[in-house]
């Protein structure tokens, strides 16, 4: 087994230390080492967006980032989005709009939408569609997802 490296990073505002093999992706670290299983593996090659997280303010596919690359950085995952007693407005909008069916792509879509609204609080429908094009959903046909993100933008 490859030697494991020590990594210190910030996840959802908390300092976290972990050991990982150099070949382990951030997605593997989140899921297998830290048991944060909200990020999902759909393709493991950056094409489905189910593993989307925000790394130092930037949306990334966590399957394409190595765990060791997060040293000294800050990671936001779906688990950190809601306050203890209150959902994030994007989460509320997804529920109100019935913008999920099976739910496997939902954490990725919500993180992707957050990254969009963080930098563009009032996107047009086209801007939402352009931004979310890296997230695949096979259940909904995207209609209700796009509406949810537009609603969340209006609510924030």
């Amino acid at each position: 087994m490859a030697r494991r490296s020590h990594v210190q990073t910030t996840i959802n505002g908390e300092t976290v230390e972990f050991l990982c093999e150099p070949r382990q992706s951030l997605l593997e670290v989140l899921r297998d080492e830290l048991h944060l299983t909200g990020a999902k593996e759909g393709c493991n090659n950056g094409n489905c967006g189910a593993c989307s997280v925000i790394l130092d303010g930037r949306l990334v596919n966590s399957c394409l980032v190595l765990g060791v690359e997060t040293e000294g950085k800050s990671v936001e995952t779906i688990e950190g989005l809601a306050a203890p007693d209150k959902l994030h407005p994007i989460q509320d909008a997804f529920l109100e709009n019935a913008a999920l069916q099976c739910g496997i792509c939902t954490p990725g879509f919500i993180m992707s939408a957050k990254a969009l609204l963080d930098q563009n609080p009032n996107p047009t429908e086209h801007e939402v569609r352009y931004w979310l094009a890296g997230n695949l959903c096979r259940c909904t046909g995207y209609d209700k997802i796009v509406r949810a993100v537009l609603d969340a933008a209006a609510a924030e």
Partner: peptide
């Protein structure tokens, strides 16, 4: 009517456990 689905909160917060999440 259109109530919020019962498993909705678990699925928008990443807490819902899918097969690969089993430990």
């Amino acid at each position: 009517t259109r109530p919020i689905r019962h498993d909705g909160v678990d699925k928008v917060t990443g807490r819902a456990l899918y097969g690969a999440d089993f430990q």
